[in-house]
Amino acid sequence: MAETTNHITSARGATALAAAPLAPLPPNPEALTEPQIRGRDCVWCAVTLGAGSAIDLGERSAFLHGTVARWFPRSCRPCALQHVYPAQLDHTQNCEQCTDDPTACAHGTWLRLVMRQARR
């Protein structure tokens, strides 16, 4: 299984490194096409994305084809709703920090931002 590292980008553009997965992605990045890895196509359904229709899932690092590489998964709105929304619900139900102050949790904030984009 490929190891991934996630970068969380806030609405203000600040980037933080997160050790835990934020949103579910296909389990094997090596099985994805070049356009899916580069973010031109949806990471789940492979539909070609336009500038206004793409949901950014954050820059990732993964072991791809024998080397550590950066990749840029993006999603279409329907797939983001299908895959990210359950991750957001699961996170907010199990995160003590989100219960106390949702704005203090970088993971919860990132998931909420992705869901806002998906619902537009």
Rank of each mutant, 00 (worst) to 15 (best):
F72V: 07
T48V: 12
G39F: 11
W71D: 00
R70F: 15
A18Q: 07
P29S: 03
T103A: 15
Q36R: 09
A106R: 06
C95R: 01
G108F: 08
W44A: 00
E96W: 10
R70S: 15
M1G: 04
A54M: 06
V68N: 06
Y85E: 08
C105G: 02
E59A: 12
P102F: 15
A69H: 09
M1Y: 02
L22Q: 04
A69N: 08
V68G: 03
Q88S: 10
V43H: 00
G50T: 15
Q93Y: 12
W71E: 01
P73C: 05
C42M: 04
R116T: 14
S53H: 03
H91Y: 07
T103N: 11
A46L: 06
R116W: 13
C42D: 02
W71C: 01
R40N: 13
I55V: 13
A23L: 07
T99Y: 09
G108K: 02
A87N: 02
T5C: 11
C98Y: 03
L111V: 01
R12A: 14
G108W: 09
A31G: 00
I37R: 08
C95E: 01
A2H: 01
H107S: 06
A23T: 08
Q117C: 08
V47F: 00
Q82S: 06
G66K: 02
A106P: 07
L64F: 03
I55H: 01
A16K: 13
A23W: 06
R60W: 12
D90R: 11
R40E: 15
R119M: 14
